[in-house]
Simulated assay, not measured.
Amino acid sequence: MKSQHLKLGFLASRNGSSMRAILEAIRIGILDAEARLVVSNNRSAPALEAATAAGVQTLHLPTQADPDAADAALAKAMVEAGVEWIVLSGYLRRLGPKTLAAYRDRILNIHPGPIPAFGGEGMYGRRVHEAVVAAGVAASAITIHLVDEEYDHGAVLAVREVPLEPGETAESLEARLTRLEPEVFVETLQRLASGQLALS
């Protein structure tokens, strides 16, 4: 697969830590990409402020009152902004059918644990780390995967294994993975842009 210039859209509900790292990677020239649009369902999301400061177009799009209308509006906004790949950076809403259809195999999410073992509906944030520690497994993982109609179900693109340390707690594991997640997302997009990561 040949290299490509990535035209990115972002969805974030809160801080958008991975989004911030990706924007910085673009700014300093280590990622061949451009950010076209940042959308949040939360008007006060710090991610929107960060995007504005970086000169990226933003959109607040409430989803709860009319999810179908929000889905249609999201797909339309992304297409009109010229977005070719959507990055989820802590987006806490399920994507609707119009957005999923418009960006089939073009939506990337990061999950703070191994999937499918520690994925699925309701498995996000601290809950994942609690389940990993309770299971007594030797390692957790940061997983980048494509998004489809099921939670944490799409094809896995990248995995960074993170061994558990003696006396590990959900809190300590969460802190370590949270520090690593942005770096893993940037690396995955670099591989995608360079053609090293080929999607079928």
Rank of each mutant, 00 (worst) to 15 (best):
I107Y: 09
V56R: 02
A33E: 10
H145I: 09
V159G: 06
L6S: 08
G29M: 11
V83R: 04
R93P: 01
G136S: 08
A134Q: 14
A138H: 06
G122I: 10
R160L: 15
E171W: 01
A155Q: 15
T178G: 00
T169F: 04
E171T: 14
T58W: 10
G122D: 13
L37G: 10
L157Q: 09
Y103N: 12
R127T: 13
L177Y: 00
A77T: 05
L100N: 03
T99D: 07
L8A: 08
L180W: 00
V133K: 04
L88Y: 06
R106Q: 14
A33P: 03
A45M: 07
G195I: 06
G136N: 10
M19S: 01
G113L: 03
D152M: 08
E149C: 01
R43I: 12
V38H: 07
A101D: 14
H153F: 03
G90C: 11
L95G: 05
R36D: 01
R176Q: 11
L8Y: 09
R104N: 13
H129C: 11
E181H: 02
E149H: 13
A102F: 04
G120P: 13
A75N: 04
A198T: 14
L192I: 09
V83D: 10
G16S: 05
A135M: 09
Q4N: 09
H5R: 15
L100H: 04
Y103F: 15
R20W: 00
P163S: 11
I22E: 07
A170I: 04
A170M: 09
Q196M: 09
D66E: 14
F118E: 03
G154P: 02
T178H: 15
L31I: 11
K2Q: 14
H153C: 05
G154M: 11
V133D: 05
A141I: 03
R36P: 01
T178V: 08
T188P: 01
G122Q: 09
H129K: 03
P67Y: 04
G136P: 01
S3H: 13
A47T: 09
P163A: 12
R127W: 04
Y151P: 10
V39K: 02
